[in-house]
């Protein structure tokens, strides 16, 4: 069983080829290159290094969001198109859960964080090696998240390159409960996306057309429009 893993949900890029539960080749990088320019060449490079032709792939796993809208869409578009034209199943994995998987040797609360700008985060809380969901993926202001985390009254391991943005505030609120992964665990790895994908039942090939990103947030224009409709209904 040969998997291709694609991770472009935020600034870091990762592409991996996994054969029978073994990582054959993987790229993990966090450079200033847009995914639009960099992701497809990286897929070509990793497959070439692994000596795998596109047609030899058995399944594709993609980090489905949340994260940068454009970043998520690039990964999903590449994954959807490859899966559809190669007639292979496509599995979507939460980009937050895939990042949390970097800390899955930790037997406690794991909190992956993506910077969503203006003091906001995409985040979740998972627990232990099995990554049990404690708080589902969502969008929140960092202050709102910290209130929920305080209520857990236990140490929490933060993971992700964006944690630095909020670290001062996190320590201020959580004190000694705030823990941080080593920097070498901060970038998402497509091999983890694939590992999590191997645990779910493979969807049918026909489902690929309907695959959509998990933004965890409606578009701003739509939010404003819904608000207007509500106000109109009140009048």
């Amino acid at each position: 069983m040969i998997w291709l893993g694609i991770e472009t949900a935020n600034a870091p890029l990762s592409i991996a080829v996994i054969r029978d539960g073994k990582v054959i080749a993987e790229i993990v990088q966090n450079i200033k290159l847009t995914h639009s320019a960099g992701a497809m060449p990286a897929i070509e490079e990793v497959l070439a290094k692994a000596g795998i032709k596109p047609g030899e792939l058995d399944a594709i796993a993609v980090s489905e969001g949340p994260g940068s809208y454009t970043g998520v869409r690039i990964g999903v578009t590449l994954a959807k198109t490859l899966a559809w034209t190669l007639k292979k199943p496509l599995v979507g994995i939460s980009s937050l859960k895939a990042l949390a998987a970097n800390a899955a040797l930790y037997d406690g609360f794991i909190c992956p964080v993506f910077d969503a700008r203006r003091g906001n985060v995409y985040t979740a809380v998972y627990k232990g090696c099995e990554l049990e969901t404690i708080i589902e993926d969502y969008h929140d202001h960092i202050d709102g998240l910290l209130v929920r985390l305080q209520a857990l009254e236990a140490p929490i391991l933060f993971v992700g390159a964006d944690v630095d943005v909020f670290w001062h505030k996190i320590v201020e609120v959580l004190g000694d409960y705030a823990q941080r992964t080593p920097f070498s665990n901060d970038l998402p790895r497509a091999s983890e996306t694939v590992r999590l994908a191997t645990k779910v039942e493979l969807p049918s090939v026909d489902a690929v057309h309907h695959f959509v990103p998990q933004y965890k947030r409606i578009a701003e224009a739509e939010a404003n429009w819904l608000k207007e409709q509500k106000e109109k209904a009140h009048e």
Binding site: S36, A39, M40, I43, E44, P54, G55, Y69, T70, R73, I74, T77, L78, K80, T81, L82, T85, L86
Partner: peptide
């Protein structure tokens, strides 16, 4: 730009796979 990127990445993936 965000709209262009969907067609371009689909085209690249399709071209590569085939």
């Amino acid at each position: 730009v965000g709209a262009l990127l969907i067609g371009i990445n689909a085209a690249k993936a399709f071209a590569f796979a085939n």
